[in-house]
Amino acid sequence: MSAGAPVRLEGLRLAFGDMPAAEVDLDVRSGEIVVLLGPSGCGKSTILRALAGLLTPTAGRAEVDGKPVGGSNEACAMVFQEDALLPWRSAARNVEYALKLRGVPRGQRRQEAEELLAQVGLEGFFDHLPGQLSGGMRQRVQLARTLATRPRVMLMDEPFGALDAQTRSEMQQLLISVWRQYGTTILFVTHDVDEAMLLGDRIVLLSPRPAVVREIVDIRSPRRPGAQFEPEFARRRYEILASMGDAPPAELSPEGA
């Protein structure tokens, strides 16, 4: 399978109309999960959209695997928060469309689509329309569809933001297992600190709009099961919230400092 590609943002400047949206320098190693964390509306999604080729930067460079990003590039695939599935196609047919775009011959598409859907836990739902699936299942289909393009970089724009807590935690586990298998680079946007700490190798803290990198937090031994129940986790969580200006007063902090 295709391994991840490195991503490099160099003085990347993005704007929404006349409003500056983001100004970012960032190096992402191949196969790394980097979480972009920032207040909602800070322009973090904009950074992903630039990498996906959906938005042209006003200045600077965005490189994937050493090549500048432009137009529709197959190396990056995006998982959206909302319903980005084509509602008139069944789960399997949605994945088949991605396979068709990758150039898989017609005869092999159905089988490969079913394999991918089974991999994300959707056996028995191949012929369901998106409207007949729950929110979590629809995001599973999106994940399978994205994997079908064999991306080297997955751009995930608050993909689990609209899910309930339990489904969200299931999806996070699923994402980690898929990532272990495929080794793709993942850029993950969220405003949920816990999600960021559970998934990321590194967390990029962004300022309110226009988004600039405030701090990059390294996670020691990332994605260790049960890590969220250790005092260390709570301490880091507090630090991150504090640096986002969102922390409770110090006397309530876990250390009572």
Partner: peptide, 28 residues
């Protein structure tokens, strides 16, 4: 909805494919 077309484009769909497989069926 814009997101259908954007999703197709990030998966590598070109103009014609977007028209035939996203825009036309979505507009039906």
């Amino acid at each position: 909805p814009k997101v259908w077309e954007e999703a197709a484009r990030t998966m590598g769909a070109r103009r014609l494919s977007v028209l035939a497989h996203v825009v036309l069926p979505g507009a039906m």
